[in-house]
Design a protein around this nucleic acid. Sequence first.
DNA 1: CAAGCAAGCATGTTCGAAAATCCAGCCGCT
DNA 2: AGCGGCTGGATTTTCGAACATGCTTGCTTG
Lengths: 237, 237
Amino acid sequence: MPPRPLPRPAENDAVLVSQDVLSRLKGDILDGHFAPGARLRFAELQRLYGAGIGTLREALSHLLPEGLVELDANRGFRVAAISAEDLRDVSDLHVEFEQRAIVQSVRHGGEAWESGLVLAFHRLARIERLTREERKQRSSEWLAAHRDFHRALVAACPSRWLLRLRAQTFDHMERYRLVSQRHRPLGPSKRAEHEAIQAAALARKAELAGELLAAHLRETTETVLRHAPQFMPPPPG
Amino acid sequence: MPPRPLPRPAENDAVLVSQDVLSRLKGDILDGHFAPGARLRFAELQRLYGAGIGTLREALSHLLPEGLVELDANRGFRVAAISAEDLRDVSDLHVEFEQRAIVQSVRHGGEAWESGLVLAFHRLARIERLTREERKQRSSEWLAAHRDFHRALVAACPSRWLLRLRAQTFDHMERYRLVSQRHRPLGPSKRAEHEAIQAAALARKAELAGELLAAHLRETTETVLRHAPQFMPPPPG
DNA sequence: CAAGCAAGCATGTTCGAAAATCCAGCCGCT
DNA sequence: AGCGGCTGGATTTTCGAACATGCTTGCTTG
């Protein structure tokens, strides 16, 4: 069951093949199409993405420092493993990054930030109002909207580095959420929480927005951890 | 003036050509052989490192998410720019990472950590006892020892993610230090500070070690910033 | 003379053939 | 049976030729 048919229409605006492959490959790792720990063989990747070996290597090399794939010499690339320990580790840092970023974002955000946030929230809310069944069918749409919403919240944070690191940890958190979701039913919508965070942000209550966001993220992590045994690989012993 | 002669003897133990090129290229960017903002042309890189284009692209793709190089489509790779603003940004986060990491490291470190630290400090101290002239000649040796010393300090920190992010910001801090050093005389040795930090760590005074380390790093950043106009590119206007 | 265009060159990007490496299974030996 | 070495096939790694793109220069035209 290949993740996607071969030369997927350029729905993204990637100019370079390597960038296009990169985003597709990353998406397929984050949503669990490639299981944690799975080997990534070039023959298969070539078939799936229709790119040459060199191009694939370039994309995989990009994912290496992000911690999404691992490489051991002459044995090729593997999807990075997951563990409850790693989840707690990355989650703690991620919550902190998000909290700090949103506080600064609320304090520095101007009109453009407000508009962007309102728009992103609106798009997310439209999907989250649907029934569970509909949400399930349009999950990739929800995923993009959710991602955009969280990015919009922190978009006005002036620290480029904080945003960069937040983006890194966000990816990993997303992978944990999505991988765990494959092994349990879709949870209830977090619509109310998203709305509360957005409201606090627009009301310029920076500290409150930070607390709400942190709580939202912590709860998500706890939910994933609660279901962890169902999808976590057993310890190597 | 090429950074180094062509097929440098394999002084590191990199099994893969791409990994070897990666570490050399990274080193040459960090120490300013390739100036911030400079274009990285494949013809030149091929001549310098004796590797094929594909291999070079792989190494550059690795440096992309680390923020050391940038890519714009069909225009190739450039060394990432520097600025006083970026330095403050990355420095603030770096100081915090180091401080938290050393506190945890001191609390969790066992015998192996202690030995490693003692050894790393000893190696660094040997070089820092030399005269300024000698230190200048053996700067690459000092660089490695300094790097190892700081790594040894935080090595026992149990958070893999904290260590990973610390390593990322460390690289950028090192680049700022080295690039600025090319435009001003070598500063005085930080020997006493390093010794104080090591002593506090070995005495298991976690908080003290954290404070000393943070102060050490902040002072370094301030020194660099004080000399910033001499090496920072003027604002694009 | 300025604006627009086109040709030519410099450079970036992609791809898969060829070499290197690893690994599983087989064989012979103790 | 257990161990060590060997071989063939599977896989990874490297490389640069071939193609694509962007930039400069110099010509043409209004």
